[in-house]
Design a protein around this nucleic acid. Structure first.
Lengths: 140, 140
DNA sequence: ATAGCTGCAAATGCTTTGCAAGGCC
DNA sequence: GGCCTTGCAAAGCATTTGCAGCTAT
């Protein structure tokens, strides 16, 4: 893991987009910087849109949705389902799970090692597990 | 666990509604019969609505939503979150988990015993776990 | 040059709501 | 009778789409 600057000219973000086969447009670069500059983040489309505006980044909400889905499709993000009618995107794409604070709506990562699945029922013929999601819902 | 008839006059359903403090109206009775007559089920509001119509039960989609939420609020159902924009309700309210067949959208229960959580990170001061959801996403 | 993006606004789709009429206790 | 429910249609939201104009390569 290497240090990452948060400056707007950080080349890492550019490489990351190119590496994923996504054209590094102004909007995508700006969003990627917001998303990946600091450590792991959990964001909704609306929240990221608001953040972008605060940073004087000019784009539309539709573009934010497009970008989030493009990033997810290329493995740069992971989508988390919490409540119907609200998708969350996680910049941590490695195998891990989540605490979900129902009161505040906040998410917190749980390292994969801390959860062990004792057994899996018959995964029907030829069916392969694509992912295991564990969400621990917390009141407080 | 006692045998359950699937006839429309099954008194169990009536008792179940009364026991939950819900007025056994014609609509709720009909929906409860569809939901609880045969074993555990996973339904969406739309699917249940369609099923009700097929059984010549006259009610509106809004009433189905109301009933599902009322039932869930009284502990007769459990809501499962899979994809944004689609809620599923499970007639099995005991502690258990799910297989989710992404191709077909089908859900299958996994007994709670088959999943063991090895550890929980610090559940912040006074926070209590309200539920642990494990969803195993399967391709096939 | 050109395939890929973006922006906007309109469309979609699930879910909720408002309020008058109806039904259970 | 009183209060909870229902029904319908209209409202609400988050998300998606269509298409003209822009832009990275």
């Amino acid at each position: 893991m290497r240090a990452r600057s948060t400056t707007a000219s950080d080349p890492t973000v550019l490489e990351r987009l190119r590496g994923a086969g996504l054209r590094p447009t102004r909007q995508r670069l700006a969003l990627a910087r917001l998303l990946f500059a600091r450590g792991d983040r959990h964001v909704t489309a609306e929240a990221l849109f608001t953040e972008a505006k605060q940073h004087r980044v000019n784009l539309s909400l539709a573009t934010v949705y497009n970008a989030l889905h493009d990033f997810t499709g290329k493995g740069l993000l992971r989508e988390i389902v919490l409540d119907s009618n609200r998708s969350c995107f996680d910049t941590n794409t490695s195998d891990h799970h989540h605490f979900y604070f129902e009161r505040s709506g906040r998410l917190e990562d749980i390292p994969a090692e801390q959860v062990r699945i004792a057994a899996l029922p018959q995964a029907p013929d030829g069916a392969s597990v694509s992912r295991v999601d564990v969400i621990i819902r917390v009141d407080g």
